[in-house]
Amino acid sequence: AEKTGIVNVSSSLNVREGASTSSKVIGSLSGNTKVTIVGEEGAFYKIEYKGSHSYVAKEYIKDIKDE
């Protein structure tokens, strides 16, 4: 089941290729951006990003809701 969340950062949140802080950064999301969460892996959520799937750190996503 998909969930949505809100990016909870003051500046921007790195979007990564994989579920690791050493993964390549492929983009960023600004605070209060709504994201669609399709899964989770460790400390990361797998999200829909620009037509494919990428990862963001869970600690920076708030207001998780089931869609």
Rank of each mutant, 00 (worst) to 15 (best):
K3C: 12
G31K: 14
S10F: 08
S20Q: 06
G51Y: 04
S10H: 11
D66G: 11
K58T: 03
F44E: 01
G18L: 11
N32Y: 11
G31L: 10
K58M: 07
G27M: 02
E48C: 15
S11R: 12
G18V: 07
I37N: 00
S12M: 12
L13H: 03
S22H: 11
V35R: 00
D66A: 11
G51E: 06
F44V: 01
S30W: 10
E67P: 12
V56T: 01
A57R: 10
A57I: 08
S52L: 11
R16Y: 15
K24N: 08
Y49K: 00
D66I: 14
S23I: 02
S54C: 14
K34L: 13
S20F: 07
V38N: 03
V15L: 06
R16V: 07
S22F: 07
T4V: 12
D66R: 08
Y45H: 03
K34Q: 10
K62H: 10
I37K: 00
A57C: 14
V15I: 07
E40I: 07
N14K: 13
H53I: 14
S23P: 01
I37S: 00
V25H: 03
K24P: 10
F44I: 00
K62F: 10
E17V: 09
A43Y: 08
E17S: 10
H53P: 06
K46L: 13
V9G: 11
R16M: 15
A57N: 09
Y60H: 11
V15T: 04
S54N: 07
E67Q: 12
L13R: 03
F44Q: 01
H53W: 12
K65G: 10
E2W: 14
E48T: 08
L29C: 04
K3A: 06
Y49D: 02
S11M: 10
H53V: 13
K58F: 03
A57P: 15
S52F: 10
E48D: 09
K24W: 04
E59Y: 07
S28P: 02
S54K: 11
E2T: 15
I61W: 03
S20W: 06
R16C: 08
N8F: 09
T33H: 06
I64L: 09
D63I: 15
S11L: 09
G51A: 05
N32I: 05
I61N: 01
I47T: 01
H53L: 11
K65C: 11
E59K: 11
K46F: 05
S30I: 12
V25E: 03
G5Y: 05
E2S: 15
Y55T: 00
E59P: 04
Y45D: 01
G51S: 06
V9S: 12
A57T: 06
Y60C: 15
S30E: 13
K3V: 09
I61Y: 02
Y49N: 01
G51W: 04
T36R: 14
G39H: 03
V15W: 01
S52N: 11
E59N: 07
S54H: 10
T36F: 12
E48A: 09
V56N: 00
V7P: 03
E48Y: 11
S12Y: 11
K24I: 07
G31H: 15
N8C: 15
S22N: 12
Y45Q: 01
V15S: 01
E41T: 07
V38C: 08
G27T: 02
V15M: 05
A1S: 13
Y49Q: 01
L13Y: 03
N32M: 10
T21D: 13
E41R: 06
H53G: 05
I37D: 00
V38M: 06
V7M: 03
G42M: 04
V35C: 04
T21W: 13
A1L: 14
V15N: 01
V38S: 04
R16Q: 11
G27H: 02
G39P: 00
A19S: 08
S10W: 06
R16K: 06
Y55A: 00
A43D: 15
K62E: 10
S52H: 10
S54P: 04
N32E: 08
E17P: 02
S20H: 09
I64E: 07
V56K: 00
I47S: 00
G51I: 02
E67D: 12
D66Q: 13
T36W: 13
E40C: 09
I47D: 01
S23A: 13
V15E: 01
K65Q: 12
I47A: 00
E59F: 07
E59S: 08
S30P: 15
T33A: 10
V7W: 02
E67V: 14
E2Q: 15
K3E: 04
G18Q: 12
E17W: 05
S12K: 12
G27E: 01
K50M: 14
N8I: 13
E2L: 15
Y45T: 02
D66C: 14
G27Q: 02
T4D: 05
E48H: 08
E40M: 08
G5W: 06
S11W: 07
Y49P: 00
E48V: 15
L29G: 00
T4R: 09
K3T: 08
S52T: 14
T21V: 12
A43V: 08
I47Y: 00
K34V: 13
S54D: 02
K65F: 10
I61S: 01
G51V: 03
S10C: 15
A19R: 03
E59R: 09
R16G: 02
S52W: 07
T36V: 14
Y49F: 12
N32F: 10
Y60D: 08
S10A: 13
V38W: 06
Y55K: 00
E59Q: 10
S28Y: 13
E67F: 11
Y49E: 01
S11N: 12
V56E: 00
S23D: 05
N14Q: 14
D63S: 10
S30D: 11
S30R: 14
Y49I: 03
S10T: 13
I64A: 07
K65E: 11
V56L: 04
K62S: 14
G39I: 02
S12W: 11
S11H: 14
I64S: 07
S11I: 12
H53C: 08
V7D: 02
I47P: 01
S54E: 03
S12T: 12
K34S: 07
Y55E: 00
N8K: 12
L13F: 03
A57K: 12
R16N: 07
F44M: 04
G27S: 02
G31W: 09
E41S: 09
S20L: 06
N14R: 11
A1C: 15
K65M: 11
G5K: 04
I61K: 00
Y45V: 05
S52G: 15
K24E: 06
L13S: 04
E41N: 07
N14H: 12
G18I: 07
V35T: 00
K65T: 14
K24H: 06
T21M: 15
S54T: 05
D66V: 14
K50L: 12
S20G: 06
G5T: 04
R16I: 05
K3G: 06
I47F: 02
I61E: 01
N14Y: 09
I61H: 01
T36S: 08
G39E: 04
S52M: 13
E48P: 03
G42A: 05
T36Y: 13
S28D: 06
L13W: 02
N8V: 14
S30C: 14
S28A: 11
R16W: 15
V35S: 00
S52V: 11
